[in-house]
Design a protein around this nucleic acid. Structure first.
Lengths: 341, 341
DNA sequence: AATATTGCTGTGCTCGTGCACAATAAGTCG
DNA sequence: CGACTTATTGTGCACGAGCACAGCAATATT
């Protein structure tokens, strides 16, 4: 490891001058600036972050902008766990995190919450954002993020933004994987229902599309999409079962598969209907365990939260280059492998 | 964060005395020892590892004892990647790693390699061990690990050892999960062959046992176990296909599924036989992509290596308590979700 | 009584970096 | 020429912990 002291010796100047050049704080002659920069590059100088964080008294503060933890069947607790893990790990580097929770079904809440961020903008050194709202709102609010505050998206993203990184999944792949598993479950024939519960979320639409596409060539399997619009959940499910005597599978592209499973249990439906859903919420977990849900696909929400904060840290504190896209693997969960997640 | 300086003030002694009490270096009176210890406990003193690693000049060295990277279809490259990742991350804490590679098919190599460790025992602050040999050898050599060198097992383990942690998988779960997927693949009927390639490895036996047990109640599916003993690989496979006209699936409980897939491709076997295997080796990956292998189960070898080193670090450097067992989730890989692993 | 030993306690330096401030040289102005 | 500004460079302290060594009483030894 090359230190500032050693570089100062090489350039025949003092530590202070090298320091000024490194941080471009000015107050040095052009000639010496060039000379020092050349040496810095030659020896590939990397500051010792340990010493740096030891001496620097100012804390780093990251803001996290995400839905309230209990929403989507408590799904949002999961990324928050990962964020908390990163927070603990980075404690010695004086990294603090401020949470901004919004109600993901209310534009007002979304706006109010974002206003709070704007008020605190001078304290924030970075933002981690889960933008789960309609395209319009996303675009509106992205513009307002103050210049100079780097931000990372996770779970979902906004096209053409200046985010330093996106951490998430490949929804298209995940949809076709679900289709493959469904085909196996129903032994290649029958009708499959898709239940869309969450309105207008682009990555859920992607899942639905690639799931449907998988079966388009296949004439033995029919796919029908059902939406919750105006009708109640129970009524919708009643319809689905009545309409399709040959219903063999249900695909729930959001975290709501547990509700379908609950309906089947409560109404004591005897038909052998297979369910594939998403995300390891408490309810989903319990019905996967019982065997009512066959497969759950997961997108590692804890890892997303954790890596989100770590990415900000690497960019802001370590000044490293970070990957623009960090696509995480899709996990397939079943009764058998559930235990250790 | 409470510092030694502050504690010294509280106890009305000097920093040096507090330091002596913390490290039990002696040279302090009993009364002051008690007093300082009480305060340490009260304020829950945690040393600042940043400052500590900045000042301490002595490097920490961990030894890693594992099979040569190219063995088992290059499987052992994978945990080594994780180990290298941890090594890089811990560079600032002056952690060094020495690799000891043995030939996993030769007891002599195993012993020679272990002797090298014994020679270097004074330099080692910890050991990460992948004990992939017969029970006998394992027991023999565990005894010889010098007292005072903490060690962690990964991939496999030795019962009743004094290891500080084991990082690995649940082989029983993994076997029954494979069976579940196989049942789906072959639509609930036919014959399934199990091919055992690796001799006497306890976790592979576990996989086979729980795989077989899953089908014991099921009369429509027959399971047969084949071993490579004396015969060549090609001959064995030829036999399997000739003997079983109703062969619908092959389960390879080791990393060798790719070789089976290769055989099928080369001999242009037209029968629709489904393959489930283990581990993301280069060959396995390519045949999974082509659709010849249906599923690969993975035990996150990179994570195992990474967590192995981090566990040693937490125990040796941070003096934290570590979990005795760290069971990792089983990943199900298919053509569709392969891309991001 | 002078010196050595023992038992305990306090101080000062180190690590690499950041930052405030001191120091120096060169030039400007009255 | 002396006072002053400005540009540039050097130095000292701080961060928290570890460790060597100095200091200093109270005994022990000669």
């Amino acid at each position: 490891m090359v230190t500032i002291k050693e570089i100062a010796k090489l350039a025949n100047v003092s530590r202070g001058t090298v320091d000024r050049v490194i941080h471009e704080r000015g107050n040095y002659s052009e000639a010496i600036g060039k000379k020092v920069k050349k040496i810095l590059e030659k020896v590939d100088y990397k500051p010792n972050i340990i010493a740096r964080s030891l001496v620097s008294k100012k804390a780093i503060t990251f803001g996290v902008f995400l839905p309230k933890p209990h929403q989507d069947e408590k799904y949002w607790e999961l990324p928050e766990q990962g964020i908390k893990k990163a927070e603990k790990e980075l404690e010695t580097y004086k990294v603090k995190i401020i949470y901004f929770h919004y109600n993901k079904n209310s534009k007002t809440s979304f706006k109010n919450c974002f206003d709070k961020i704007l008020k605190k903008k001078d304290e924030l050194d970075g933002l981690l954002i889960a933008p789960s709202m309609s395209e319009f709102t996303k675009k509106e609010f992205i513009k307002k993020i103050p210049d100079g505050i780097p931000y990372v998206f996770f779970d979902s993203y906004v096209p053409n933004s200046k985010c330093i990184s996106y951490i998430g999944q490949n929804s298209v792949q995940s949809g076709s994987l679900a289709a493959k598993l469904m085909k196996l479950l129903i032994c290649g024939k029958g009708t499959v229902g898709i239940i869309r519960m969450v309105p207008k979320d682009y990555h859920i639409d992607d899942r639905i599309k690639s799931f449907s596409d998988f079966f388009n060539k296949n004439k033995e399997i029919k796919v029908r999409i059902y939406e919750i619009n105006g009708t109640t959940f129970n009524k919708l499910l009643q319809n689905i079962f009545e309409e399709n005597s040959n219903l063999r599978g249900i695909f729930v592209p959001s975290a709501g598969a547990g509700r379908v499973a609950e309906y089947i249990k409560e109404k004591r439906i005897k038909r052998n209907v297979h369910i594939i859903g998403y995300d390891l919420t408490t309810r989903n977990r319990s019905f996967l365990k019982k065997g009512v849900i066959d497969f759950l696909l997961s997108q590692r929400p804890e890892v997303q939260g954790y890596e989100g904060i770590m990415t900000l840290f690497r960019h802001v504190v370590l000044k490293e280059k970070v990957k623009k896209e960090q696509i995480l693997p899709i996990d397939i969960l079943t009764k058998e492998n559930l235990k250790n997640y």
